[in-house]
Simulated assay, not measured.
Amino acid sequence: MEKVNYTISERMPTVLEHKQLWESVGWGSLNTEMSERSLATSLYGVTVTIDGAPIGMGRIVGDGVMYFYIQDVAVLPSFQGQGVGKAIMRHLLTYIEKRRHDDGIAFIGLFAAEGKTEFYEKFGFKNGFPQMTGMLTVLD
């Protein structure tokens, strides 16, 4: 497999990049007004490009001290399996490690798309804990 020659930038994706990558991985249609506000309040983001065109992204939301939530890790399907997602995760986890409180733990959460749990397990994520139940509701 040929190595992908990409650039990873410590910046939030633009609203249009976010929409393009979101929709390319099958997460449905994205409201750009909502996306713009959500991106603006994120803690940190990375955008991966080739010749200026976006091929991947990831961001972190949370309180920046104790709770961090990895969000929107997406790589264009044609570039998946080539190390782009791993590079995104390394950047996100490094950010958390540097910014979490020195004397406390950091809770890091994420939701994995169907079929992607094995990818996140390589970074130490587990599907729940015996003493905790992950729960979710969506208001639409």
Rank of each mutant, 00 (worst) to 15 (best):
Q82G: 02
K3A: 14
G128L: 08
V61Y: 02
I88T: 07
S24V: 09
S24R: 05
T14I: 13
K122G: 02
T41K: 15
V15G: 09
P13L: 12
V75N: 06
H91D: 11
H91Q: 14
G64T: 07
V73T: 09
G83S: 10
S9M: 11
E97Q: 08
G124N: 01
Y67S: 07
G109S: 08
I70S: 03
K98F: 00
V25F: 07
K122F: 00
T32Y: 04
A87E: 15
G64C: 06
I96D: 00
L93W: 05
S24Q: 08
K86W: 04
D103P: 00
I50T: 11
K116P: 01
A40N: 15
H101G: 00
A87I: 10
I108N: 02
R100Y: 00
G83L: 12
L110Y: 01
S24A: 15
I70E: 03
E17M: 12
M57R: 10
N5F: 07
F125Q: 01
G56K: 04
H91C: 11
E121D: 02
W22K: 07
Y44R: 06
T14G: 14
R90G: 03
E23S: 10
G115N: 01
Y6M: 14
F123V: 10
A74E: 06
L110A: 04
M34D: 11
M34V: 14
E114K: 10
G109A: 09
S29K: 15
T94H: 11
K122V: 01
Q131F: 14
T133W: 05
W27G: 00
F129D: 12
Y6S: 14
S35Y: 10
I55H: 02
G85K: 03
E114W: 00
L16Q: 15
Q20G: 05
P130E: 14
T7D: 12
V46A: 05
Q20F: 14
T133N: 10
A113L: 09
